[in-house]
Amino acid sequence: MDNPKHGMTLIVKTITRLTVGLILLFGIYIVSHGHVSPGGGFAGGVIIALSFIHILLAFGKEVALKRISYNVASFFESLGAIMFITLALLGIGSGYFLLNFISKGEPFRLFSSGLIPLYNVAISFKVGAGLFIIFVILVTFRLTKKDDRE
């Protein structure tokens, strides 16, 4: 991890090691409290993707892809889509598509409002993994030999 040949300088690496866990924790907080406070799956998913992009920019792509590999990110993207569709289809059993069928609970609590937190988690998986995949592809793309001369 401390290979000085890859990535940025020692200062950036040290700060990254201290802050990246806090950024991931903030993303998880934004996702899980999306139905009682500002936030939600979209913003939280982008923050989770940014925490891994932070590692990728500071340490280089080998370390970042060791933490969360391409297959794991692909798995989470598919998991988000399948989780959303499954939760939506379960509503058909007691009514119609996308029905919020379980108990609403007491308002202003973390475990309330039925299926909305689960939908938030599914959306955050999908957005976070998808943006991380897009960024990995854009960063690791190398131009062919002909244009490297410029």
């Binding site: 979209f42 982008v46 957005v127 943006l131 854009l138």
Partner: peptide, 10 residues
Amino acid sequence: AIVIGLAITA
């Protein structure tokens, strides 16, 4: 629309 805009820009 914001998240769709990000995907389109990428």
